[in-house]
Design a protein around this nucleic acid. Sequence first.
DNA 1: CTCTTGTTGAACACTGATGTTCGAGTTAAC
DNA 2: GTTAACTCGAACATCAGTGTTCAACAAGAG
Lengths: 208, 208
Amino acid sequence: MTTTGQSAGAAEKRPPRADARRNIAAILDAATECLARDPDATINQVAKAAGVGRVTLYGHFDSRATLVAAVAERAMAEADSVLKDVDLAGDPVAALQRLIEATWAVTHRYGALVVAAERALPSEQVDQAHADLRARAERLLKRGQRSGAFRKDLPVSWLVTVLHSVTHAAVTAVHAGDLDAADGPRMISAAMLGVTTPAGGVVPDPAG
Amino acid sequence: MTTTGQSAGAAEKRPPRADARRNIAAILDAATECLARDPDATINQVAKAAGVGRVTLYGHFDSRATLVAAVAERAMAEADSVLKDVDLAGDPVAALQRLIEATWAVTHRYGALVVAAERALPSEQVDQAHADLRARAERLLKRGQRSGAFRKDLPVSWLVTVLHSVTHAAVTAVHAGDLDAADGPRMISAAMLGVTTPAGGVVPDPAG
DNA sequence: CTCTTGTTGAACACTGATGTTCGAGTTAAC
DNA sequence: GTTAACTCGAACATCAGTGTTCAACAAGAG
């Protein structure tokens, strides 16, 4: 606590050193990748993947939960920034396809990170984030139901669940080598356009 | 090793005592339920749920893996016995609905048990069982594609994946209280009939 | 160059789960 | 009723992951 010529008073924080910032970024990146692949990834694995010692990691993040929270927050921020630009107006079918396309990239990158968050974080935060993501799809699907574009005999919550579930299945399939990543959006779209078509209605062509 | 009047020679096995058999059954039942709910369930939790001490459990099952294997084997046997009776002939749409109905009961009971098996057992066994289950649906879907009842522009493997994924989602939703168990088959059928309908075709009514 | 901030591996304590051992007490079988 | 099979709790060893401490060392900021 030697006052080095700075104005005395409360805790004066100098900006972190350059290598520190570099390491923090590397840790966040590594943690994102590790946790997206395996939600049970070890702190050791993350540190090794980031190219730093375990102690260094703990120097920047108090605990596993802190790290997961930071990663999750960053992921949510990017997801929001990607999804907020999606145009959900106009023809509901086309809008759904746009939403799927945008969601695909995000889900494909962050994979099982949600699971890690669910285990390490208090449910309040996770629930909130989860609800936000669902709300977007819910609004669109509800609008489509009102306009008659989507089937009304299934609850919106179930349609959202199916969308979420099918997307996740596609990511898993890609990861298992059973599906080409480029085909993801088309597969999901084709499935979801079928699911949302009213009984007695004609299924639209996803190739459109 | 006092030979009690039995023919000497190799290991003579008397049948297990009545209470032992009772406990083994209780352990298998408890393990099934616990693992179906949480694939990470502890041996302690299983023992407690079965109403026996941990030591007793280890007396009957050498290790966690052994227990999981036994539970999985029993589950597979029941699943097979239920599914082998399903009539997959006739109209593919009706057959798919029958298959979904039958699958529902099994999946609903065994839930996340697959995950536990995947973690504890050598992948060969799990893959084999998994393949058997998928093959049934695959045959039906392929036949439907040939007859024109199901869409041909999506690979059968993807249709099976979606069926599996949607079924699992429904089980999860029921468990979370978001869906009534009795509605499961209708929700899955409605979704899958939409998914399998060829583009340009008319979606059949699941209520039918 | 100098001083402060960061990094590092090794060693440690702690936790929770698995699996084992022991001895005393029960219970089914015959 | 005698005996062998079974149960049970407590205690123990083991293992893997988390989080901390320490002391030597490296590197950025001024």
